[in-house]
């Protein structure tokens, strides 16, 4: 997660309160998703960005997590996400993020 995105999320967390913020990731590689989630939960692991050493403990989800699908209108899902669903291992991402969310809780 680049420094600009980290600082935007930090600003939003300060403005609205971290308990009122949920982050939805969209990256298609599992490793990238995990690093972003770790950054938003426990702080930037590379210690390069504004979230280095900052534990925001945010609730982080991936937009393709199968259990979230029912919250998205089918036609919107098909138009915006259908193509990604074909190539992304959504279940693996959900399992990984779910584990991280449980650990954070």
């Amino acid at each position: 997660m680049d420094a600009e995105n980290q600082s935007t999320i930090m600003r939003l967390a300060e403005e609205y309160g971290r308990e009122n913020l949920m982050v939805f990731l969209g990256a298609t590689d599992v490793e990238g998703v995990e690093i972003s989630a770790e950054t938003l939960i426990a702080g930037d692991p590379s210690f390069a960005g504004p979230l280095a050493g900052v534990q925001l403990g945010l609730q982080v989800y991936h937009i393709l997590e199968p259990s979230l699908k029912r919250y998205i209108p089918p036609e919107v899902y098909q138009e915006r996400l259908g193509i990604f669903e074909v190539i992304v291992d959504a279940q693996r991402i959900e399992d990984s993020l779910s584990k991280m969310r449980n650990q954070a809780a």
């Binding site: 298609t28 259908g82 193509i83 990604f84 074909v86 190539i87």
Partner: peptide
Amino acid sequence: KLLAALAIM
């Protein structure tokens, strides 16, 4: 990958 996904769809 996206082009392949499109071809699959």
